[in-house]
């Protein structure tokens, strides 16, 4: 019973946060509501017995990615007045498209309803020792490749944003 109440509270908070990300005018408020949504998703991970995933999610998303967003927003000096807005027709079409997508996906999901009500016996799969064994045993090659991806992303970001003295 308590699990259902926590789930409903977290779900309402995440959906409201996501809606405020879309409909809030001020970009700083968008970033803050997105951080709220990410925290509630971390709560969902804990509910799913994925504790290490929840911690990594908080560190990576709320700690690194959203700080990057906040830096960029502050650097660009955005505010409500120079925020570009679409026309009302385009906004209406956007909401209509998303709503139709939602309805069709929900209708489609009725086709493969699983009556999987939980109570899985193996509930320590989300702990770090178990995940580390799998990650460094079976998935060690993708792990190393992802380090190459990070190095190239880091170098790419630095090279892209560096001011080119020959252009000025």
């Amino acid at each position: 019973m308590i699990t259902e109440i926590i789930f409903i509270l977290l779900s309402v908070a995440s959906v409201v946060g996501a809606l405020m990300v879309v409909f809030s005018r001020n970009t700083i408020h968008c970033v803050l509501y997105l951080i709220l949504t990410f925290f509630t998703i971390a709560g969902h991970y804990i509910m799913l017995n994925a504790q290490f995933l929840a911690i990594v999610h908080i560190i990576v998303y709320s700690g690194a990615i959203m700080v990057l967003f906040l830096f960029v927003v502050m650097m660009m000096n955005l505010n409500k007045d120079n925020e570009p807005q679409k026309s009302d027709m385009a906004k209406f079409i956007a909401v209509l498209t998303g709503g139709l997508f939602l309805i069709s996906l929900v209708a489609l999901s009725k086709a493969f309803v699983t009556n999987n009500t939980g109570l899985v016996a193996v509930s320590d799969i989300g702990l770090v020792s178990n995940l580390g064994k799998i990650l460094f045993d079976k998935y060690v090659f993708p792990f190393e490749i992802s380090s190459v991806l990070f190095i190239s992303a880091m170098a790419g970001a630095i090279i892209l944003t560096k001011k080119d003295p020959t252009l000025q």
Binding site: F7, V22, N49, T97, G99, L105, V113, L119
Partner: peptide, 29 residues
């Protein structure tokens, strides 16, 4: 904790994904 029914997560994730799609089409920033 016991796990919540899978269908609840399916609905929740569909709603969040659709809100993301609305946002991509809705915003110009």
């Amino acid at each position: 904790m016991n796990l919540i029914n899978q269908n609840a997560y399916l609905i929740l994730c569909t709603v969040l994904f659709s809100i993301g799609i609305i946002g991509v089409l809705f915003r110009r920033n």
